[in-house]
Amino acid sequence: MLRLNGVGRRFPNNVIALDNITTRIEPGAFIALLGPSGCGKSTLLRILAGLDTPDTGSLTWDDNTPPGPGDIGFVFQDATLLPWANAEANVFLPLRLAGKSLETARPIVRDTLAQLGLAGFEHAKPTELSGGMRMRVSIARALVSRPKLLLMDEPFAALDEFTRHRLQDDLFALWREARTTIVFVTHSIYEAAYLASRIIVMSPRPGRIAAELTCTLPDTNTRRTDPAYAALTTQVTETLRAVMPA
């Protein structure tokens, strides 16, 4: 789907956030960006989204065709919902901005909410939803346009462990069904090992790719109990330890 060739980003204060990022994003992959705070994970995600521009290097899309409106979905760490709008209106927002009417879009909006376990909550406003449900609405909003690439910036970081596990399971199930290409930023070794088909480990600033690990776990939601999962988390831990300064 996309190749990054020597991508670098230097901020006006001369902080080098990214240096020589070269990798690929394959269609249908679930890629976890893992690394310490300040290593440029979120900066890289913004560049992928077109919200920032690299100072060096390039991004090359298949057939040299950049993504169009609705081709990229973005889920932030905070749900960032419109507080005055109900769940249906929040999910409808990308389609409304694309010029579609609610009457036309309502079936796909409600189907997307149902996919995220929110059938029956279409008219609930954010203050009437739990933190986990608000994040589900945010994910539904990112998915409603059926994007080719879904970018997620630590979406579960602020949730309690139980809710986080539930949402990880739901996201993994959605990915297995739809095979939407996902790039997922996380600080959690366990989250990366459970969700990803490939883990990109980044070094401390300036952010570079220290290692790329391929997940060979079974493509089921029983990954956490598979002995290979423990082995993968150990491998990722050792890789991170090797790139962290003493």
Rank of each mutant, 00 (worst) to 15 (best):
R134Q: 15
M135F: 07
R136K: 14
R136C: 08
R136P: 06
S138W: 04
I139Y: 05
I139L: 15
I139A: 09
I139T: 08
A140F: 07
A142H: 08
P147D: 13
P147F: 08
K148Y: 00
L149M: 06
L151R: 00
L151Q: 04
P155A: 07
P155R: 02
P155W: 02
P155C: 07
A157M: 12
A157L: 12
A157T: 12
A158Q: 09
A158F: 02
L159Y: 02
L159P: 00
D160P: 02
D160A: 10
F162L: 11
F162K: 11
F162C: 02
R164S: 10
R164Q: 12
R166S: 13
R166P: 00
R166M: 12
Q168Y: 07
D169P: 12
D170M: 15
L171I: 15
L171Y: 03
F172Q: 14
A173G: 06
A173F: 03
L174V: 12
W175F: 14
A178R: 14
A178C: 05
A178I: 12
T180N: 09
T180K: 13
T181C: 13
T181S: 13
T181N: 06
I182D: 02
V183I: 15
F184V: 06
F184D: 03
V185Q: 05
V185K: 03
H187N: 14
E191Y: 13
A192F: 02
A193Y: 01
Y194K: 10
Y194E: 09
L195Q: 06
L195N: 05
L195W: 06
A196E: 10
A196P: 10
R198F: 05
R198M: 08
I199A: 03
I199K: 01
I200E: 05
I200G: 01
M202E: 08
S203H: 04
P206T: 14
P206R: 01
P206L: 12
R208C: 02
I209H: 00
I209L: 11
